[in-house]
Design a binder for these strands. Structure first.
Length: 449
DNA sequence: CGATCACGG
DNA sequence: ACGCCGTGATCG
């Protein structure tokens, strides 16, 4: 990937950057206007990127209500702790009157725009004399001690290609459209579907002979997160939405944002805030802060425990896996991945401290899934690189984003057959559960995905 | 150079 | 102390 490089549309970046900077300027003017209407003067060199200055303004002079939540959980408001990250800002916004809300909204906008500008401005600077961008997957220089991860995942830097904004809500400028196929080429984007859930399904079969999760993530199975949303909120908790019992809706409704926004929101909650968090060891305490009610208030540990217990009750293998992982690290002082890597956790397990043991337990639960994912994608990468037919057709690997491989292919090559061969290699790792791959093609990264 | 914030899986 | 693994821009 470092040698192959990839093509970047620098003109697209510069045009989008120009629009973003224009909007940024508007934002700054609007913020000043807002402060004027509430009769609040700030120095000319006030820095909206300074957490310290922002805290003094919001919680000092404007006396906005401090948020009890931030991205990582609880804010100790009583102890004087204040947070102004995106999660906290949203809470503050929803608990402010209209005159204040105007300013908080504008600051949220400003952060978004600057997030986009960060990438749009710097990406073209990485174009090398050969016209390509060559990101680095090992140490970036003699002074760089970072050579990867303890789970054997790759990392990528200069530029950080695995962190390019993806979601439409976060990326107003579609940065991935700048990652284009070179002339007379097509991009191929191949993604392992729900990779870590498939790995956990494999582990649960091997440990307990339990095939439930494997069947839930198998090809042709009902959508995992829709199923979980209906099971947890409908069957287990008996909630109603759109004037009907949630349990009575067909699963397709949970993915229909237009017709059933309330069901769609339940599915998003389960997918983004519950499923992976629980797989990696989040407890009802933490879940009580990340899940919110209709007023954006954290639902609390007690209500979160219902969701937590419901999900574990409907997929008992996860709970058995968690117990198994704890017993394993207590006995062995570390955790093994199925690719053979080992993470030493003795500094936690031998400390005699229950919090450090809990930390080791979470690392241990996550490790086989992250390590296994790295093995599976690494296996696919080497199989594809070693395939003489693909090599002869000029297929080039451009990027790896943990569970996704991006290639370029000359247009003279047979696209459907190449995609089929990629799919075969990406599903060939021997597992008790079944790997699935989704493939897209296009002229740029955004279209192909 | 540590802390905070924001982006991805 | 109460999801895991990363990279990087910015502040103080």
């Amino acid at each position: 990937m470092e040698r192959n490089g990839f093509t970047l549309d620098a003109d697209y970046c510069r045009a989008a950057e120009g629009r973003a900077r224009d909007e940024e300027a508007v934002c700054l003017v609007e913020l000043r206007k807002w402060l004027g209407t509430i009769h609040c003067a700030i120095p000319d060199d006030f820095n909206w990127a300074s957490g310290k200055q922002l805290q003094e303004l919001f919680h000092g002079r404007l006396a906005l209500q401090p948020s009890p939540v931030w991205k990582k959980g609880r804010v100790k408001v009583a102890e004087g702790e204040r947070k102004l990250d995106q999660v906290a800002l949203e809470w503050i916004r929803n608990h402010s009157d209209r005159s204040m809300r105007r300013g908080v909204d504008e600051l949220i906008r400003l952060r978004r725009l600057r997030g986009a500008i960060k990438y749009l401005a710097k990406l073209p600077t990485f174009i090398a004399p050969d016209g390509l961008v060559h990101p680095v997957t090992g140490p970036a220089s003699d002074g760089d001690a970072r050579s990867g991860t303890i789970t054997w995942r790759l990392a990528a830097k200069n530029p950080e290609i695995q962190q390019i904004p993806s979601s439409e809500e976060k990326d107003w400028f579609r940065i991935r459209r700048a990652f284009v196929a070179p002339p007379d080429h097509t991009l191929i984007v191949a993604d392992e579907a729900a990779l870590e859930a498939v790995i956990l399904a494999h582990i649960i079969i091997k440990l307990f002979g339990d095939h439930q999760l494997a069947e839930m993530v198998a090809p042709g199975a009902p959508n995992l997160h829709s199923r979980n949303a209906r099971e947890v909120y409908g069957v287990q908790m008996g909630w109603e939405r759109h004037g009907r019992a949630v349990r009575d809706f067909p699963l397709e409704c949970f993915q229909d944002r237009e017709s059933y926004p309330e069901l769609y929101a339940l599915r998003q909650d389960i997918k983004n805030k519950v499923w992976y968090a629980i797989m990696y060891g989040m407890q009802p305490y933490g879940l009580g802060f990340s899940l919110r009610d209709a007023n954006d208030e954290p639902i609390g540990e007690k209500a979160a425990r219902l969701v937590y217990d419901s999900l574990l009750a409907s997929v008992p293998g996860i709970h058995r896996y968690q117990d198994w992982a704890l017993g394993y690290i207590v006995e062995h002082g570390g955790m093994v991945g199925f690719g053979g890597a080992w993470v030493d956790l003795r500094e936690f397990t031998e400390s005699g401290d229950k919090w450090r043991l809990a930390r080791a337990h979470r690392i241990a639960q996550n490790f086989p899934m992250q390590e296994g994912g790295a093995r599976i994608i690494g296996h696919a990468m080497t199989e594809i690189s070693d395939d003489p037919w693909l090599r002869g057709l000029g297929l080039c690997l451009e990027r790896q984003i943990h569970d996704e491989l991006d290639f370029r292919l000359p247009d003279s090559s047979p696209l459907p057959e190449v995609c089929a061969r990629i799919q075969k290699h990406m599903t060939s790792y021997p597992l008790a559960s079944k790997l699935q791959v989704t493939i897209g093609t296009g002229a740029n990264w955004d279209d192909a995905k």
